[in-house]
Structures are given as C-alpha cells and as structure tokens.
C-alpha cells in the first residue's frame, strides 16, 4: 500500500538528508580546498573558503619530501594482495560452512567475528615480536599477510551469507554431473556468486586501503602505504596544513574514485540477502 506523505514532510526530509550529507562531506571538502591554498593562507586567522592564490606547489612539495608513488604502489599491493589472498582462503572456507556445516560451524563463525571486536593494540606486542623474529617488519609481504588475517573474518562472513542464498540442489546437480569438489567451486559456485564475491572484494580493498593502525606501526619507510604517508606529514617539524591536505587528498583520491564507480555494485552486494 502506498503511504501518503505530505509535500511538506518530503521537503523537510530532503533538507535534513542534504544537511547530514553535507556535514559528513565537509572534512573532505575542507581538505580538497585547502590542498590548493598556500601554506600561509591555510593557517591565516581570517579563513578563506575558496583558495585565493590557487597553487599546485603543495603537491610537488609532498612528492619531493616523501615519494607518493612508492607509497601508492605499496597501498595497491597490500590492499589488492591481501584481498585476493583472503578470497582464496575464504571461498573454500565459506563453502564448507554454508554447504557442509557441522554442529560447531555457528560457533566458529561467532568466534571469528569476535576477533574483530578485540582492540588491535591488544595483540600489538606479540605480533610485533613475531614479525621482528621472522624479519617481516617493514615488508610489503608481511603487511599483506597481517591485512589478510585482519580482514579474513569479514571476507568469510560475507561470502558465507552470499553462499547461503545459493540453492544447494544446483551444487548437488554438479556433483551428479561428475564434478569433483574443485570443479564444483570453480565452475558452478563462484560464477553464481559473482555479485557477492565482487562486493566482498571491493569492500575489503577499501578496508585494507584505509587501515592505518598496522600499516603505521609495522612499517617505517620501505613498505609504508598511503596511510603511513599521510601520518608522516604530521611530524615534529610542524603541522603544514596545506601539505597535509594535499597528501591526504592524494591518498584518498584513488579509493574515493573506485568507491564512486562501484557504488552500484557495492550497494547491490551489501543488500543481496535483504531484498531477494
């Protein structure tokens, strides 16, 4: 039944929604504008909205001081690498939980989720020591490994939820048709779960890209990602707002663009179970 909503209410809600969106967006807007101001204008006592002396010097300064592209490549390697590794482990794990559950499957799922509720600092010391002894500190593969471990619970949970929607009959048909387990997963399950797997992939790339705690604590120069890159600009030498903004803008731009172009897929994937 269509609900009757008065025009006044609609206008009110629209204004409220725009206001909330604007408040959420304002820090990014501020960063965007400040990045093109001179350092003097950025900290001036009479703040300006639009840059008065539009400049790109912050960007070249940032690139000169610490190599943006090196950090960007590290970010890509770590976020994409850890997500792919996570999917390789997560798909078979989620298959067994969705289609061959045991009595303990629900408990294992809950336990995995509970690790996400634990504060990361709680395991900082042991992880740091293990990484030191295995010589994984400040390496891209070490960082990829830790990022995989951190996001694996989310990957498995998301995949599990999508797989549960797939009729088990179809997998059984594949078994009857002579498909061994590997073929069943590669030729039947994965193609049917493409929307779910794609949104799992997107979300986890974003999460890994934005992750700051481990990337900052486990790297120092060589393996630093863009989050480490930004944080290096709030240094003891002083806070350079315009350069910090330029660095932040460079760091978030790729993921912002990716999120923008994939938002349809993301929304579809994340609401998969709800609207079916």
């Amino acid at each position: 039944m269509a609900r009757n909503v008065s025009t006044g209410t609609k206008v009110g809600f629209t204004i409220a929604a725009w206001a909330v969106a604007l408040i959420l967006f304002s820090p990014i807007l501020w960063v965007l504008l400040t990045a093109f101001k001179t350092e003097a204008e950025a900290i001036s006592n009479t703040p300006t909205f639009f840059p008065q002396n539009f400049t790109l010097e912050n960007f070249s300064a940032v690139q000169d001081r610490s190599d943006y592209f090196k950090h960007a490549i590290n970010s890509i390697l770590v976020s994409v690498g850890s997500t792919l590794l996570g999917l390789i482990i997560g798909i078979p794990a989620a298959w067994s939980m969705a289609f061959a559950p045991s009595k303990k499957t629900k408990d294992i799922l809950m336990w995995m989720l509970s690790t996400k509720m634990m504060p990361a600092v709680g395991v900082l010391i042991p992880i740091y020591l293990i990484f030191r002894d295995l010589r994984l500190l400040d390496t891209v593969h070490g960082l990829t490994l830790i990022m995989t471990l951190i996001n694996l619970p989310i990957i498995i949970w998301m995949l599990y939820t999508y797989f549960k929607e797939i009729p088990v009959d179809i997998l059984e048909a594949a078994r009857m048709d002579g498909a061994e387990l590997w073929n069943e997963i590669v030729h039947v399950l994965v193609p049917m779960a493409v929307p779910g797997i794609a949104s799992t992939l997107l979300l986890n790339v974003i999460l890994a890209w934005n992750e700051a705690f481990w990337t900052i604590t486990l790297t120092s120069g060589r393996a630093g990602t863009l989050t480490a890159f930004i944080s290096s600009f709030s240094s003891p030498q002083g806070l350079f707002l315009a350069k910090l903004s330029a660095a932040s803008l460079l760091a978030i731009a790729p993921i912002l663009l990716m999120g923008w172009f994939s938002q349809k897929q993301l929304v579809r994937g994340l609401t998969f179970g709800a609207v079916k």
Partner: peptide, 10 residues
C-alpha cells in the same frame, strides 16, 4: 544421473 524437482539448472 539425477533429475531434480527444482530442475537445478546452472
């Protein structure tokens, strides 16, 4: 070979 009630086509 098996034929299912739900057809179970890919």
């Amino acid at each position: 070979a098996m034929v299912f009630q739900s057809y179970a086509l890919y």
